[in-house]
Structure formats: C-alpha cells, structure tokens
Design a protein around this nucleic acid. Sequence first.
DNA 1: ATAATATTTCAAGAATCGTTGAAATGAAAG
DNA 2: CTTTCATTTCAACGATTCTTGAAATATTAT
Lengths: 104, 104
Amino acid sequence: MIEAEAAILFGALANADRLKVIRTLVEAGPDGMNAGEIAQRIGASPSRASFHLAALAEAKLVIKERRSRSLIYRVNFPRVGGLVSFLLEDCCNGSPSLKKCCNL
Amino acid sequence: MIEAEAAILFGALANADRLKVIRTLVEAGPDGMNAGEIAQRIGASPSRASFHLAALAEAKLVIKERRSRSLIYRVNFPRVGGLVSFLLEDCCNGSPSLKKCCNL
DNA sequence: ATAATATTTCAAGAATCGTTGAAATGAAAG
DNA sequence: CTTTCATTTCAACGATTCTTGAAATATTAT
C-alpha cells in the first residue's frame, strides 16, 4: 500500500463514531449487521450513521450488501490488516522496537 | 486507549507527508533528525514541515528536543505501538482473522 | 397501486485542516 | 550586541469534514 492510500484509510478511522462502527461490526461477526442496528448501537442518528458507514465503505474498510430491505455491513479484514501491515512494515520498516511496543 | 484518543491519533496519520515523516524518522533511528533535514527528505517547505511536525508532536507520535540551534525529532514507538494495539486488540477484539490478514 | 420500512441523499452552516510566504522567535557565533 | 542560522508562528484563503433534519430512494407487503 502506498502512503497516499494509507493516509486516506487513516482518515477513515479518524473518528470515534467510525471506530465504534468497526468495533460493533467485529463483534457482529461474519453475518454483519444492518445499518439501523449499527446506528442504535453507536448512538447516532440514521443519517449520521449512514454518513460514517459511507466513509468506511468508500475506503473499503467495510463491505456493504443488501439483504431484503436492509443493508448489512461487514468488516473487510484484509483491508484493515493491510493498513496494520503498512504501518508496521512499510511505514515503520518492520522495526523490532515498535513490535515490542505492541507485544508482537 | 479510548476511541476518542485513537481517533485523534489516526487523524495525525491521515496525511501522506506526515507518514513520510514517520518513515524518515524510523530510518533515522534513535538519534532522530532535525526539522530542516526532515523537510528536505519529504520534499516540503520548512513551514509546511513544521506544521506537520507540530501535528505529530501534538499527538505525541513524535518527540521533539532541542540540540543547539536545531530541533531534533524522534519517533515515539510506545505511542505508535499503543495505536496498533488499540486497533488490533481494543477495536477489533483481538480478532484472529485480522491477525492472519497482517501475518501476525 | 398504495402503504410501510430501511436507508441514503441533500442543503446549509459550523468547524477543522492544509498551503503559502512573510514575519517573529530562539540559540549560537563573531 | 549584532548577525546568522534554524525553526516556528501568523494571517489569509480555499478545501474538506461533520452535523442536523427534511426529502428522496429502494424494497417489500397488502
């Protein structure tokens, strides 16, 4: 991943509501969760949740799929993992000092 | 680390120039590098580099110290590591799926 | 076709961020 | 104490992001 792309992904994570969405979707597991329930869980209005979900989907950090009337969202683990790898390996050169700091 | 703080740190990384700074400082190692040389390495004007360095220092992702006329900067590995841990453990619940995606 | 449900889109305004070049600050040398 | 060097600060502007509530869209059921 190149810096410009990583910067966009970090920007997508630079919001507490969106981090709550990620956490909520990780807990929801592979079945995902629909937009309305996500909004309730993170304590946001439908339109605010939709705005944040769109930002995460645009960054491909979550995947969106329609199931009947609902739109369900799931975490895109390879994408999140790619960002972690960028930070650890590309940006920080695989630094052992850094890895020790996150117990890796 | 709480979500609000992590969001601020992700925001500090949400810029290609600032990611270049981090990479440059990791390569520079424990001795750090002064502001002028950082500016040259990342191809930014002194004032732009100063702006980005201030953002990183404000987030405590880098540490600033005066050495004679120069201000030298170093990466704050525990802080960067804390953010990686937040993402892997707190936000993503230590998900094994995610860890596989970044070869951990 | 009409109604009900789930979600997104839109407009408007506030807030924050990024860039530029000029001026100001801090530290050291002559 | 004046000059020089290194860096930051500032003002101004444009660009982007966030929030709110109302309106629009898509899907399903009657």
